[in-house]
Design a protein around this nucleic acid. Structure first.
Lengths: 200, 200
DNA sequence: CTTCGTATTGACCGACCGGTCATCTCTAAG
DNA sequence: CTTAGAGATGACCGGTCGGTCAATACGAAG
């Protein structure tokens, strides 16, 4: 039934890497095809448009995340607050590895895309919002658990979770601008100090 | 000696607005010229290239910032820690005003540009780094002052200042993705809870 | 062997991109 | 009045953009 080729997968993987290390606007369909060793016609056989490719890339990456280090960081039986450090460490090592290979820190694909397209395309924006929301949920659960075990004094876990994710994105933005992944390691751990109190 | 026209200034102002509300790649020279009511040849009379325009736009905006609300927030005789709230408030009102007019939250021009171009253009990246550094210095001075007056227990003011700026950028990124300036008001004040301890 | 849908090929399209240039206008200095 | 240079004009350039399409190759089902 299903073909033996993997053109679609190659396009997806290539586009993901190129969008991540450069930007959505800067990478053309032609270049993606060349790099994925696929003809232009084939590209448009699998994806109706470049934008639809972007949607698929986001889904693909979000999926890899969910089953990758995010799952590792949040699912295991680490003490809740240590999971935050795990996330920061994962971000640091990933960015550092990417920089060692490519020479430049790519930052977070979702953050990059969010700032690039969210004033122009509400569908892409909605998809990125969903990805962020899902990540925020993980943070919230962690905070709730930490509060339940007494490792954390009561706070507004919903807002604090959002603040923590925003901080992580901000740190990565800052580090990418300086092209220095070490900043993730230096600034990252302060994520645990963020607090938004419950209003009552 | 100097001409009575203001074409250059119009180009600069127009480009700044378009780059801010959309993106660098998405706005073409042609559109800038049309919107600024300037001919293409005139554009290239004042700016050698689109990239040089971007450099000028960054300088221009950084200058306006320095003499605008950043100066207000940091120069006055507010208690140090309240200046942070002032910065957050200013960011909130600005983003809200922009959204009320345009329908979309533009985010921070510097953050937007940083993520868009910093893997491709080291000169632009350096310029943006300088802008961020200058802002960080303001935060650092504020923290040092707060520590001197006893309003803040000792911490690493250099790193904490960077963390705070990163947080602000992250919050704006998050709010822009959700297209909801209210998030700046909700999450912003937590900036004061960020702490990076001195290592001794 | 035939049929049919998926996958592939690569030439082609109009629009737009950043950038150039010869030409003209205007103004202020001499 | 002359001259020189800054400013303005708009046609023009090669290249690239996202996207189309008719023709073809291929593998599985009948």
């Amino acid at each position: 039934m299903h073909s033996a080729t993997d053109s679609r997968a190659r396009i997806l993987r290539t586009a993901r890497e190129l969008f991540h290390t450069r930007s959505y606007a800067d990478v053309g369909v032609k270049e993606i095809c060349a790099s994925a060793q696929v003809q232009k016609g084939s590209f448009y056989h699998f994806f109706p448009s470049k934008r639809d490719l972007a949607l698929a890339v986001i889904d693909d990456m979000a999926d890899d995340w969910a089953h990758g280090f995010v799952a590792e960081a949040f699912d295991q039986n680490l003490p809740p607050m240590e999971r935050l450090d795990y996330m920061v460490d994962a971000a640091y090592y990933w960015q550092k590895a990417a920089k060692d290979i490519e020479g430049r820190m790519p930052g977070c694909l979702f953050g990059n895309l969010a700032l690039e397209v969210s004033t122009r395309d509400d569908v892409l924006r909605a998809k990125l919002t969903a990805v962020f929301n899902k990540a925020k949920e993980q943070f919230r659960q962690t905070l709730d658990e930490a509060m339940a075990t007494g490792a954390l004094t009561p706070l507004d876990s919903e807002s604090t979770a959002a603040a923590m994710l925003a901080y992580l994105e901000g740190v990565i933005l800052w580090a990418k601008t300086r092209n220095d992944p070490e900043l993730v390691r230096v600034l990252g751990p302060a994520i645990k100090t963020l607090r938004i109190e419950r209003l009552n």
